[in-house]
């Protein structure tokens, strides 16, 4: 047993991080946000119909193709079939990086469609998929999997995740539910680790009462608890990527959701008034984290599965 990342896995993580930092750094994030936000703040009510302004495109198709070229979507396809021949642990590392930078788009659906839907593997096609009572990125997708008749747009909580509501709440679970949960957990992990970093960084530099606010124990302990949740979730998510065991995935999902949501909230608290602004990125992490918690049945389903696991397994 050696649970640590292999050298190849570290290299993969470095590669994805470099690609995303170069192609989707803070400026790109804010530009995407501005596109999604349309003409400005006054439009809140008008936007309630969910229609996008301008050319209606928020997703950067050039970036999508670059992700395709870098193997983000084809990562797990066999090497002969145009893929990188990697496994779930590598996919989890890549999605963790996507979560760190708040990379927008139906990444999971497109990744899972690679090899099955033409153009998904190379990033030529944007693929989305119905998931329970919701579907993300419906208007921008080239291919939609699942039944989306009667889809009604919502004014999306996360400006960078447009969502439609599907009739008949809690529709049947998608066959890919397990992988959606796992990759979603990986994104949550990346976001949680990032908000912990941002919080600690802010706490080291922002001064009040003549010292960095990070010297105050109340702030220190918020940050420490963030890290504890991140590292616990990390162990669970990585292990689930190795075992692909449904109970391990459910556990990973629960802990990663919690680490991301609470991490973003605590990060907001550490930032004070700045944390409540549109200008700060903290709300983007929180809103995305909240959005991800709705995927593949959410916390209720995971907890019920894990409860069942306690009484069904052999003692």
């Amino acid at each position: 047993m050696d649970f640590r990342l292999t050298d190849d896995q570290r290299a993969l993580r470095r590669g994805v991080r470099a690609l995303l930092e170069g192609r989707f750094g803070r400026e790109a994030l804010r530009a995407a946000l501005d596109r999604a936000d349309g003409e400005g703040a006054a439009g809140g009510r008008e936007r309630a119909d969910g229609r996008l302004r301008g050319d209606g495109r928020v997703l950067d198709r050039g970036l999508w193709r670059e992700l395709g070229a870098a193997g983000f979507f084809a990562l797990r396809l066999p090497e002969g079939g145009g893929g990188a021949g990697q496994g779930l642990p590598e996919a989890v590392l890549a999605f963790e990086e996507a979560g760190r930078v708040l990379l927008p788009g139906p990444l999971i659906a497109t990744h899972l469609a690679a090899g099955a839907v033409a153009g998904a593997a190379t990033g030529e096609a944007v693929v989305t998929s119905a998931d329970g009572g919701l579907v993300e990125w419906l208007d921008e997708a080239d291919v939609v999997l699942g039944d989306v008749t009667g889809a009604e747009p919502l004014a999306p909580l996360d400006p960078l995740t447009p969502v439609h509501r599907l009739p008949g709440a809690g529709a049947a679970r998608t066959p890919d539910g397990l992988l959606v949960s796992l990759l979603s957990a990986a994104e949550q992990l990346g976001s949680a680790a990032r908000t912990c970093e941002i919080a600690a960084q802010h706490a080291r530099t922002r001064e009040q009462f003549g010292r960095p606010v990070g010297a105050f124990q109340a702030v220190q302990h918020l940050c420490a608890d963030m890290l504890v949740r991140v590292e616990t979730a990390r162990a669970a998510v990585y292990a689930a990527s190795v075992t692909a065991d449904p109970a391990d995935v459910a556990a990973a999902r629960l802990l990663a959701d919690e680490a991301a949501v609470r991490g973003a909230r605590d990060c907001l608290q550490v930032h004070g008034g700045m944390g409540f602004t549109w200008e700060s990125d903290v709300h983007l992490h929180l809103k995305r984290a909240w959005t991800r918690t709705h995927r593949a049945g959410g916390a209720t389903r995971s907890e019920e599965e894990l409860a069942e696991d306690l009484v069904s397994g052999a003692v």
Partner: peptide
């Protein structure tokens, strides 16, 4: 709540292995 604890202790075991 018991399901949530299952998640916690599974994760603690993995953290131990880590």
């Amino acid at each position: 709540r018991l399901g949530g604890l299952n998640a916690e202790f599974r994760a603690l075991w993995r953290l131990t292995q880590w």
